[in-house]
Simulated scan of single mutants.
Amino acid sequence: MATNDKLTIQDLAAYARNVLRDATIPELPNHYRGKVRENYELSDGRRIIVATDRLSAFDRILTAVPLKGQVLTQIARFWFDRTRDICPNHVIEYPDPNVLVCRNLKIMPVEIVVRDYLAGTTSTSILSMYKAGRRDMYGHHFPDGMRPNEKLPQPIITPTTKAFDAGHDEELTPDQIVTQGLLSAEQWAHVSKLALALFARGQEIARQHGLILVDTKYEFGFDADGSIVLADEIHTPDSSRYWYAESYPARFATGEKPESFDKDFVRSWVVARCDPYADAIPEIPDEINLEAARIYISVYEQITGEKFPLPAADQPVLERIRANLERYF
């Protein structure tokens, strides 16, 4: 595989039509399609997860970004390796740059979102709710007079329901989680402790690389013995918001939006042109998708300190994945 110096969207133009929108593999059993990933459950208790290039936001698929699935898989791999001392995870092996083979877990019906700043663009973000006049959210009280993108006194957890049908995640409070029987009080206490510890590790490593880990989403599951295991992905630009640390103070002081290191680039492009919850999404041009690909790759390189391994542009992604997964057919 070739490696890259300073990539431009012109360098990535060859990948504009080699995107993985669909990863249906008929030879693999028990197919389930998520917003971004295709899942296959094997009979021996393992799961195959294929990360596509689909980009999801506003409860819909907006576009497909070249190389995004590979970037997400490899960033998650970096973070799984560096947090396994805090929390066990579901990783078994990586047979392809886009593919994870993992333990099949019973997924927790609660998504754990940790936030350290008053930020966000979606309807469930605390900034959107705050701008709408909400001061009590997710079991937390927010004072008047806070500014967009302001740091919170300490990281907080803002849990939501887990939309297994790819629908809309709904706001929850800790009391609701326990009273509705989604988790026991003991389970909630334990998963909260794990999430905050994972977030602290993520912030520490991000800081070392000149980044701020602003907020993130964790998905946990239960192993056969009932133990809590980290699943899905961790600290990727799809599940997390990153800002450049160096420019944040000056931009915040002047009310400018922080330099973003996540899929807010595409979300912001869409929001500027329509109401993404009510209107048809305009076709996203190649230059926007390629710039998003460049941003995703730069995230990988800045976090890991390694050059992103570009695959062959002329080999269809699904063709390569099928070849690498043939032993599972």
Rank of each mutant, 00 (worst) to 15 (best):
T3R: 14
N4I: 06
K6T: 07
K6N: 14
T8I: 05
L12E: 01
A13C: 13
A13W: 06
R17D: 15
N18F: 05
R21I: 07
T24V: 02
I25Q: 12
N30M: 08
G34F: 03
G34K: 10
K35V: 01
K35G: 01
R37N: 02
E38K: 11
N39A: 10
N39R: 13
E41W: 09
D44Q: 15
A51K: 04
A51T: 02
D53W: 04
S56V: 00
A57C: 12
F58W: 09
A64F: 04
V65K: 03
W79D: 00
W79P: 06
W79R: 06
T83W: 00
T83H: 05
D85N: 13
D85R: 12
C87Q: 01
H90V: 03
H90Y: 00
V91I: 14
I92Y: 00
I92K: 12
E93I: 09
Y94C: 10
P97G: 13
V99I: 02
V99R: 15
L100F: 09
C102H: 07
N104L: 15
L105N: 14
R115C: 05
D116N: 14
T121M: 06
S125Y: 11
M129F: 06
G133V: 13
G133P: 15
D144L: 15
G145L: 08
N149H: 12
I156E: 12
I156H: 05
I156S: 02
P159D: 07
P159H: 03
T160C: 03
T161F: 06
T161V: 01
D165Y: 05
A166W: 02
A166L: 02
H168V: 00
L172G: 05
L172Q: 05
L172T: 05
Q176A: 09
I177Y: 10
Q180F: 00
S184G: 07
S184D: 05
Q187I: 03
W188L: 09
K193Q: 11
A197T: 04
F199W: 00
R201W: 03
I205R: 03
G210S: 12
L213V: 01
T216W: 05
K217R: 08
K217W: 05
Y218R: 10
E219L: 02
E219Y: 04
E219P: 03
F220I: 03
G221D: 14
F222G: 12
D223T: 08
A224L: 10
A224N: 11
D225S: 11
S227Y: 04
S227T: 12
S227E: 08
S227D: 08
S227C: 06
E233K: 06
E233Q: 06
I234R: 09
H235D: 06
H235S: 02
T236N: 08
S240L: 01
S240R: 00
A253Y: 04
P258G: 12
S260N: 13
D262N: 04
D264L: 00
R267H: 07
S268F: 10
V271Q: 13
C274T: 05
P276R: 05
A280Y: 06
P282E: 01
I284H: 11
P285A: 10
P285V: 01
N289H: 01
A292R: 04
I297Y: 02
V299A: 14
Q302N: 09
Q302H: 12
I303M: 09
T304R: 07
K307P: 09
K307N: 11
Q315G: 07
P316F: 01
I321Y: 10
R322F: 09
A323G: 08
L325K: 10
Y328W: 13
F329P: 10
